[in-house]
Design a protein around this nucleic acid. Sequence first.
DNA 1: CTGAAAGCGCTAACAG
DNA 2: CTGTTAGCGCTTTCAG
Lengths: 334, 334
Amino acid sequence: MEKQTVTIYDVAREAGVSMATVSRVVNGNQNVKPATRQRVNDVIDKLDYRPNAVARGLASKKSTTIGVIIPDVTNGYFASLARGIDDVASMYKYNIIMENSDENDQKEMMVLNTLLAKQVDGIIFMGNRVNDKLREEFSHSRTPIVFAGSVDDQESVPSVSIDYVKSTEEAVSKLIAEGNKKVAFISGSLSEPINGQYRLAGYKEALKKAGYKFDEKLIFETDYSYEAGIKLASQLKGTDISAAFVGDDRLAAGVLNGLTDQGVKVPDEFALITSNDTQVAQLVRPQLTSITQPLYDIGAVSMRLLTKLMNKEEIEEPTITLPYGLDSRQTTKK
Amino acid sequence: MEKQTVTIYDVAREAGVSMATVSRVVNGNQNVKPATRQRVNDVIDKLDYRPNAVARGLASKKSTTIGVIIPDVTNGYFASLARGIDDVASMYKYNIIMENSDENDQKEMMVLNTLLAKQVDGIIFMGNRVNDKLREEFSHSRTPIVFAGSVDDQESVPSVSIDYVKSTEEAVSKLIAEGNKKVAFISGSLSEPINGQYRLAGYKEALKKAGYKFDEKLIFETDYSYEAGIKLASQLKGTDISAAFVGDDRLAAGVLNGLTDQGVKVPDEFALITSNDTQVAQLVRPQLTSITQPLYDIGAVSMRLLTKLMNKEEIEEPTITLPYGLDSRQTTKK
DNA sequence: CTGAAAGCGCTAACAG
DNA sequence: CTGTTAGCGCTTTCAG
C-alpha cells in the first residue's frame, strides 16, 4: 500500500539526528535547540509522521487510556455521566475504552480484566452495587479507580455522587407536606446500597419527621424498566396510596403513563417524584417533579478525580458529594 | 507494591519452557503437548499472569480495539447503535474506544487522528455528514471503516442504514392519505445528505404521487434539539399546516409537546410522524407514530461488517440496507 | 543540547 | 512439539 508507516527512526535519519532527539521534540521536551527542533518538525510534516501510541505505551508504561465500565449506554442517566467523563478525559488527553456491563457480576469481572490487560491508566466504574470479588480486584490492582454516580457502602473506593439520603428525604417530605398520608417507595433492588441503604434511609427519615410509621407494604422493589413502571401502575391503582417516590426516571415514566392511561389524574389523585432528572422526566406530560442531579458534572468530576489519582496527587477527600436540587414540575401539587 | 507485574518470561522460567511455548498456550495454538500446556497453565494460575495487551499489540500489529466516533452518547438514537456495536465487538473480542465528536468537523479530524495513533484495527463512524477532508483521510488510511446509521452520498465507504428515501415517502404518504393537504417536512440541516437528499426526496416523491406540488414554505430546517421542536410548534400553530414529518425523535417530541401545551389537539388537529423509533417516541403522550428502525441491529451489523473488513474477507455488498417499518401509534389517525 | 543503547512484553518466523 | 532469535516503535537513562 501507499503508506509504509513511517517511524521515529525514519524521521531521525531524514533529519540527521538521533531517535532520542526526535522523541524529545515529539514530547515537547525543552532540551532541544530551536534550530534542531525546527528541522525535526519539518521532517515530521514532510513525512507525515505520527507517533505510534502502542509503542509509546509499551515503552512508557502508560497507555493514556482509561476504562469506563457502564451498565448500559442506552440508559440516559449513565450516558450523561459518560459524556461528562469523556469530555474531561479528552481535555487531559486520555481516551476511553467503554464497556457495557449490564450490571452483571460475571461481565463486570470480565471487562475489568480486559481493561487491566489493555493497561488502562485508570478506571471509572458506574453501577449500583459492587460485589465482593470485584471490590477485592479493585483493591488489589494498583490501577486507580473511581465510582461515578454511586457510592460503595464500604467507602473503600473514591467516588462522586450526590447525597442520596438527604435528597430522598427531601423529596418524600415534600410529598408528605402536600397532604399524602401514604407515600410509596419504588426502586430497583433493595440489595443495591443506593436503594436499600441510602434512599430507604431517607424515606424512613422523612416518615419519622412527619410522625408516620413505616409500612412495608408501601415498599415496591422492581427492576429499572419502563415496562415495570407500567405494571406497577396497575397495582397502585385502587389502593389508598396517593403518592410515590421513584428511584429511576424510566421507571417513573412508566408509572406515570400507566396511571394516566388508566384514568388516574396526576398529580391530583396521585403525586410522583423521580430521582435522576434525566431528559425523560421532562418529556412526559405532566412533567415529572424530580430530584435534580448534576449528571454531567458527576462524570466530569469523577474523571478529574481520576486524573489526580493517576498523577499520585494527594487527595483531600476521596468521597465527593455534589449538590442536588428538587425541581417541582407537574407531578406534584406545588 | 505487592505485584511486580509478572511477564511471559517469568512464566517460561518457572515452567521450564521457552517464551514461545508460553505464548503458544496463551494464544491457544494447538502445537503444544497437552502435558506441557497443563504445566504452563498451572504456572500461569499460580503466578496470576496476565498477558499485556499493549506489548502484544506492538508485536502483532493488532490492537484488538476499534474506534467508534459518535456525535453524542447522550442521544438515544446513537446510543442504541453504540450498544449494538459494543455487543458484537465483544463477541469478537474487540474493545471499543469511544469518542464524542459533536458532529464538529475539527473534532472529528482530531479524534480520527488519535484513533489512528492508537492503532485501532477498524473504525465505525456515526454522524449525518462527512466533510471532504475526513473522507479523504478515510480513503487514505488502510484502516477499515464503516458508517453506521448514515450513508455517504458518494457511497465511497461501506455503510449500514435503512432506506431513508422510501421510509420517508411511506410516512408522508400516510399523512397525506389521512387527509392532510399541507404536510410539513421538519428536519436538521438540509446540507446533511440524509435530510437534504434522501428524506427530502422521499417527501417530494410522496407529494408527487398524491398530485400535490412542492411548497418550500413547508420545509423547516432546524437543529435536532427538543427545544427547537418547542419553538417550531409556535410557528406551526395557526397556519394551515395540519401534519408534519419529523426527522428526529427529540425534535418531534418538542413539536408534539409544544403543540399540546398550546392547546392543539394531536392527532385531531395536527398529525405527526417521527423517524427514529427511539424510546422517547413511546414515552410521550400521545405516543408518536414513527418509522421504525432496527437501531441495535444497525450497530451490530456495522460491527459485523467491520470484522469482515478487518479480516480482509470478500464483501459482496458494502452498502447494507436494513428493513424499516412504520408503526402507527397515537399521533396519526389510523 | 544530543546520541548510544538498553529495554518495555510479546509475537513470529525459522530451525530443529 | 519446542526453542532461538529478531524485532514491533518508542522512551529513557547515561554519557558526553
